[in-house]
Design a protein around this nucleic acid. Sequence first.
DNA 1: CTTAGCACTCATTAAGAGAGAGTGCTAACA
DNA 2: TGTTAGCACTCTCTCTTAATGAGTGCTAAG
Lengths: 355, 355
Amino acid sequence: MELSERKLKILRAIISSYIQEGEAVGSRTISKKHNMGISSATVRNEMSDLEELGYLIQPHTSAGRVPTDKAYRLYVNGLLKSTSVSKYSEQINRILQEEINEMNSFIKNSARILSNFTHYTSFAMTPQLRESRLKHIQLVPVSDNKILLVIVTENNIIKNVVFKMSSPIPHDQLNRISNLLTVKLSGVKLSMLNRELQNEILREIHSIRESFDEKLDELMVLLMNTANQYEKVELYYDGLTNILNYPEYSDTNKAKELLSFVEDRESFTKALLNVEGKDLSILIGKENEFEQIKECSIVTATYKLNGIIIGKVGLIGPTRMDYKNVISMVKSLSFNINKLINENYTDTKRSETDG
Amino acid sequence: MELSERKLKILRAIISSYIQEGEAVGSRTISKKHNMGISSATVRNEMSDLEELGYLIQPHTSAGRVPTDKAYRLYVNGLLKSTSVSKYSEQINRILQEEINEMNSFIKNSARILSNFTHYTSFAMTPQLRESRLKHIQLVPVSDNKILLVIVTENNIIKNVVFKMSSPIPHDQLNRISNLLTVKLSGVKLSMLNRELQNEILREIHSIRESFDEKLDELMVLLMNTANQYEKVELYYDGLTNILNYPEYSDTNKAKELLSFVEDRESFTKALLNVEGKDLSILIGKENEFEQIKECSIVTATYKLNGIIIGKVGLIGPTRMDYKNVISMVKSLSFNINKLINENYTDTKRSETDG
DNA sequence: CTTAGCACTCATTAAGAGAGAGTGCTAACA
DNA sequence: TGTTAGCACTCTCTCTTAATGAGTGCTAAG
């Protein structure tokens, strides 16, 4: 059933009042404060209808009414189309630039910005690099049998891992091996660094120099293992304690339950996997799979590199969330992240060869 | 005034009861449950004395008594001497080893262990490297005008920073420059990388090759700036939400106040600076400088490299803290951190030349 | 269809009455 | 002189009751 214009207007008024005040909204409030031009009794009739349609519920008989998840969904769907980029967009851009040189700091910074501007609890995932291609490999001596492997991808993202070799490796060979590996592996996707490729390359190397380095075999194995770990993304939070600002969580046990769920990266990451990979995606209340966050909403945006989604940023808060502000904030943030990433981390070689 | 043996025994009984139960302790409880062999009336007299001496207070007339900070201090001083390493020491060692290869992960892991074992909120500072000496410098090409600077110290700790140069730098020169910088700067303390040294080295380099690289000047400046940032230590937390387990913080506002203080790294870092650099140090309640944590205790241990304190780990919780368990846990942890760091990150070159 | 009016519901608050825990003091006892 | 039993007293906590007030649903009139 389609809602009449007046019902919609009343529903929207109830929702924004509830979002602001956090208390059940009565018919008189709507009739008076929102300049409806209709009496409270009329509003009551409409509200009664809206309740029957599943958009409102009463916490108890003599209380006002509270929007349901269904109502928020309707409200949010309307906002998604209309809401534009926040007026803070330029300021966000400026703050983001401060940490542009290092990807992880950049992502951490993104989370901080989001929680600072919205006063909700924010999160940001570091980029997933499976589709990235290797550009440069450099081995750096650390100690007798420890070496540092530095990998630079074509989109200028850096990863490094320390290896402990079974026995010392001559330092003067490291540059030579680095060059060899760079030549052999540049252009290869991280996700392609598997056993077959490894054997193939080893064969090729062996064919060139019979006894090049017995170390190389071991190194390659370590390299492959590292590459596979790249799928592990990190999750940064900011403003965890912001949750305690909202009366919904004035009960410590409730706050504890939610905060523990979020603080435990494993569980929360699972919850985030359920979020669709749309540019902007919102899960409201019971739309969330996990019990602990069924009274929360999660707003998530993606960021892309060369058109491929590589990460997500967003925030979590009570279903009674200031969606309007949040949506424009998250939109601005992801817009700027995308812009800066594609300016600074774009796949230089590919963009020359592919298009 | 020296406390009599009996007063001490009663005080200890009150403290451990209060630590366990979290409720004011009455004379009857002590007399009955702790096998004192004296009546509650006698205990009452003693408690009255203890109150006068400042070791106990009554929340209100008809309540039992609660230990003061002074009492905890007495109690803790006793424990510090006697408490030995935890029975979980080996388990801790095993978990620590899992992340031994990378210093930051290692420290993060330390914080996690501490909060998991104690159920308090833990923290760990990454090492401060001012006294470390450079061992190896490697420049890695990232993109046309971005390069990665990797620094390895003599104690095998790795730091890396991405630079954006004002104009492209030829990649084939990077190894040459790396070697040059390594030769010139190895053995130099990070804290010594200042302007004078920079000029001296530049002069020296210029004298060798008149027009070596006009880039080198710029690079050196960036290198110095980076070196100065090494004093910036990172602070990792774990178990922030554990604070909510304790009835002291069942009031959300109180919890919020404390959690915000801790979550705001800046303020909390300041608080930690006040902690003495002893092997194990405890600040109880009002001994803390900042208002927000005057009802908390902070237990901190240091970790060293080559005999120099380079970082701290510890935890924060209500003054009614299970000091016995906490102390043995923190002792075990710092013991194992020290052991593993000195096994894996020891200053190889120095130990050969210096000692 | 809208609205004024009114009875009704239910959460929230305040006040009052016990109950219970624990103390301080006194007097008796070893 | 130190210890203990006994008892009055204090103060918190909990439960009950009553009053308040916000808000609804229904009815009847406009």
